[in-house]
Simulated assay, not measured.
Amino acid sequence: MALKYSTALVLSFILHCIIAVVLLFGEFSSHEKPTPTMTATAVTQENDKIEPIKAVTVDKTKLEARVKQIRKQKADEKAAEAKRIRDLERRASDAQKKRAKEQARIKSLEKQRKQKEQDKKRADEAARQAKAKAEQADKLRKAKEQEQQQAEKAAAAAKAKRLREEAEAKKAEDLRKKKEAERKRKEQEARERALEEQMLAEQMAQEMAERQKARRAQMQTEIQRFTALITQTIQRNLITDRSTMEGKSCKLAISLAPSGFVTNVQATSGDTTVCNAAKTAVLKAGTLPVSKDPEVFNEMRNISFTFRPEF
């Protein structure tokens, strides 16, 4: 590594020396440019430095062309020299940059080496600590294995107990479901019985209503029949007067005993003559036709009807 740096320094020194020599001995003097008024002798003297002139007389056009060629050649040489110097400077700068880069790389490598040493120390320390931890972990592992064995035994016992409890719970649940099913079955039967009883009761009620309706119609017929008989009885015992009674009526309220005996008679409205004659006829009869059916009699115990004399 030191040899590389020495070589770079030597090259840099040589390049700087070359640049100094070029600057000191290069062609930097300015020559008087030939003008159109210059004599042929002056031009010839100038050209003698380049090449010998064999002709005695020189064509002016060729002379100017030659002068331009010389000037261009010198300008090209100066440009080439300037380019060479720039290349040398560039190479020197590149070498310096390379040297700086190499130095930076060396510093980086040195830093990396130191870092690796520190990393190694830390790794060794970490390994030592890891070993200690591993030993401690091994002790803990053995202790945990022992605890695990004890826990497994306890878990096995707990599992056996849980299985027994689950079996007992399942048995109890099956019994509960069986009882629940039995309860639901009985409830369903009860609902069905209640529905049947309700339907039967409704049917009986309907039949009863129909019987009552028929009975009521029968009773009404009986009431109408006996009302007609009572009317006929009153008519038979009535003393009539067409001139005073024809077209007139009286509403009577009569109370009867079960035997038909008249216990009370009242005229509630109507013609007075008809009412007095009707009351006399009722009292004269004394007993009026009544039904032997208790229900019909109860309906006619206090009878009220309108009496119209017949002629």
Rank of each mutant, 00 (worst) to 15 (best):
Y5H: 08
A8P: 15
V10T: 07
V10K: 08
F13E: 14
I14F: 08
L15I: 01
H16C: 14
V21K: 02
V21C: 13
V22T: 09
V22P: 10
S30D: 15
P34T: 15
T37V: 07
M38K: 03
A40I: 03
A40M: 11
T41A: 07
I53T: 05
K54E: 03
V56K: 12
L63V: 00
E64R: 09
E64H: 10
A65P: 09
V67C: 04
K68Q: 12
Q69F: 05
R71N: 05
K72H: 11
D76R: 06
K78M: 13
E89W: 12
D94S: 07
D94V: 10
K98R: 09
R99N: 11
A100P: 05
E102S: 08
E110M: 04
R113S: 06
K114Y: 07
D119L: 14
A123I: 09
R128C: 04
R128T: 00
A134R: 12
D138Y: 01
K139R: 02
L140Y: 02
R141C: 06
E145G: 04
Q146I: 05
Q148F: 00
A154K: 11
A158V: 08
R164F: 07
E165Q: 15
E165N: 11
K170E: 14
L175Q: 00
R176H: 07
K179Q: 12
E180G: 04
K186H: 04
E187D: 15
E192M: 08
Q198R: 11
A201C: 04
Q203K: 05
Q203M: 05
Q203E: 11
M204W: 03
A205H: 04
E207G: 01
E207D: 13
E207Q: 10
A209Q: 09
A209E: 03
A209S: 13
Q212H: 13
Q212M: 14
K213R: 15
Q218N: 04
M219T: 15
Q220E: 15
Q224N: 15
R225C: 08
R225I: 13
T227Q: 09
L229W: 13
L229I: 02
Q232N: 15
Q232I: 05
Q235C: 09
R236E: 09
R236K: 15
L238P: 04
D241L: 03
R242N: 10
T244R: 01
M245G: 09
C250N: 02
C250P: 01
L256F: 06
T263L: 06
V265A: 08
D271K: 00
T273G: 03
T273F: 12
V274T: 02
C275G: 00
C275S: 01
V282Q: 06
L283H: 10
N302R: 08
I303T: 03
